[in-house]
Every structure is written in C-alpha cells, then in structure tokens.
C-alpha cells in the first residue's frame, strides 16, 4: 500500500483525497450546526442566561428549577398522555387498515391515497382544519344541534381536562395513514407458502394473523414506534395551530415550554435545560435503534 502510494502520480493522489474533500463540507456543517450546537446548548443549560446567552456558571440550578416548575410537570405529563395515546392508536389503526386493505380489496388504489394524503399537509393546515371543526360554536357540535341532536356536546377543545385529546385526534388523523403504508409494505413482503401450509393444517384466519403474520411484522412495528415516538416528542406546530398550548396550560408540552421560556419569558437557562431533557429522551430511543440498524447493514 505504502509503495503504491509513493509511486502514485499527482492525479491518482488527487483521486484518493477527492472523496474526503467532497464529504468535508457536509461533515463540517453537521459537526458545527448539530453537534457543536448541542454542546453549546448543554453548556448554556448550566449558566445564568436570561434574555441573551451569558456564561456565569450555576451548576445544576436550572435543572433543579425546571423540575420544580409546575408548568414543566404539566408539559411532561401532557406529553406522556399524548405520546402514549398517539403511538398506540396510530399503530392499532394503521395495522387494522393495512390488514383490511390486504384482503384483495377492490378500489385499493383509490382508498390508499385517501388514507395517506394528510401526511402531505403541514401541521399548521391540519391544526387550522381541526380547530374550527372541533369548535363548539361553528363545528361538529353546532352541526349536530342543527341536525336535531340537541343534547350532543363536544367541547373538548375548550375544556381543560380534555383538550389534550383533541391534539391526539388531529395527530392520529395526520399520521395513521402513513403507519398503514408501513404495515402494508411489511404485509406484502410476507411469504405466502407458509400461510398456505398453515391453511392446509386447518388454521383459522385469526390464528394465521396472530401466530404467523403479525410476528413477522416486527421490523415494521419497531420502525413505526421509533418514528411516531420521535414525532410526538418533537411535535410543536400542531399544538400551536390547534390550541396554542391552551386553554390555560392544558395542552402545553416540552416543545412549547422550551420555546416560551427561551424566547418570550427570557429564561434561556431553563429553556436550554428543557431542550437537553428533550434531546436525551429522543437519544434514549434513537441511539439503540440506529446502532442496531447500522450494525445489521454492515
């Protein structure tokens, strides 16, 4: 190797450097804007930054304050409710629709894009649509009253105890079709020979799905879970558009908390520490997953 390199002329030497040269702008961007920024935010979370970054070291004071804030614990428990329901409902609906669509359904070509199109919309658009649809004054509740069902009430979006479920509803509407597509791709990859053998042995459809098909969808379950979990932790736009975090703080989540503490309440140190907690939560889910994926492929 060394001797060939020594003998290589200018052109071939350029050819060996070129690939790394081409990669270097991207590497520089990622190292600075992702990892450098992460380190900077972690550092800020240990400082007394208020409106602007400042560098007075305060140790764990921000974290200490953060975990004592009622506002933060509301945000965390809202996120827990939201992500649990969002992930499980999306997976149930997605799997059911995928299994149903897989039964040689006529019109699959029409139904599939209908299930999928919400994914193309911005969360701001989804939020606007559902905000007025769920508004008791002009939306569903009003319609039901006009249709003669006077006792119908559906005012969750204005109700502190139930507003978080309207976020779940709109988020499920937006992404469950995408989860369906992931499961459908998994179903289409299953080998039919094994199914036929089991059918000859007299297995019912329910048994086929429970014992053979669903266990084989493990990778699809895993990717659906990882994608939904990370989407739910990041979700910000939908909440801003649908409820603005309200009524009161009823739909505040860590993403909205971070933004308001950092940019409107001038508590940058606390805002930074909340961002660090968010990153750590996502990392706990993503790193094992990515590690396993990369090892498998190499």
């Amino acid at each position: 190797m060394a001797t060939t390199l020594a003998r290589a002329d200018y052109r071939t030497r350029l050819q060996t450097i070129l690939p790394k040269l081409v990669l270097s702008p991207s590497l520089a961007l990622i190292l600075l804007f992702v990892y450098g920024f992460i380190l900077f935010t972690i550092y800020l979370s240990f400082t007394d930054s208020r409106m602007l970054p400042s560098f007075g070291w305060v140790g764990f004071e921000n974290y200490d304050k953060l975990f004592r804030l009622r506002h933060w614990s509301v945000a965390v428990s809202n996120l827990a409710i939201f992500s649990t329901l969002y992930i499980s409902i999306c997976i149930v609906i997605g799997l059911a629709l995928a299994i149903f669509l897989d039964q040689k359904i006529r019109g699959e070509g029409v139904l599939r894009p209908i299930y999928l199109y919400p994914m193309a919309l911005s969360f701001i658009v989804t939020g606007t649509a559902w905000k007025w649809l769920l508004d008791p004054g002009i939306g569903l509740e009003n319609t039901m009253h006009l249709w003669g069902w006077d006792s119908f009430t559906f005012n969750w979006i204005k109700d502190r105890n139930n507003a978080i479920y309207t976020i779940v509803l709109a988020a499920v509407w937006q992404t469950s079709g995408f989860v369906m597509a992931m499961f459908l791709a998994g179903l289409r990859g299953i080998d039919n020979e094994m199914l036929k053998a089991a059918q000859i042995d007299g297995a019912s459809n329910f048994q086929l799905y429970r014992r053979i098909i669903i266990p084989q969808l493990r990778p699809a379950f895993l990717s659906a879970f990882v994608i939904l979990a990370h989407l739910s932790i990041k979700s910000y736009d939908l909440i801003i558009a649908l409820t603005g975090g309200g009524p009161g703080r009823a739909t505040e989540v860590p993403a909205t908390f971070m933004y308001s503490y950092t940019f409107t309440r001038n508590q940058m140190g606390i805002g930074a520490s909340s961002a660090v907690i968010m990153l750590m939560t996502i990392a706990a889910i993503m790193i094992p997953y990515l590690y396993a994926e990369l090892r498998e492929k190499d």
Partner: peptide, 30 residues
C-alpha cells in the same frame, strides 16, 4: 469510496435527522 470511519460519519449524520430542533434553536439564532 469507502474509508476508515465512514460508518461513524454516517451514524453522526443519521442521528442528526432525529434531534429535537429545540436543542439547536438558541445557538442557531446566535
């Protein structure tokens, strides 16, 4: 044009896809 450490580079890029953007907002604004 694989080289030593290319998987690490790719892993770094891949993880960057999934970070919550709140973690970069403050330094980015700066």
């Amino acid at each position: 044009w694989r080289f030593r450490g290319d998987t690490i580079f790719f892993g770094l890029m891949l993880f960057a896809c999934f970070i919550p953007f709140q973690i970069v907002l403050i330094p980015m604004a700066r």
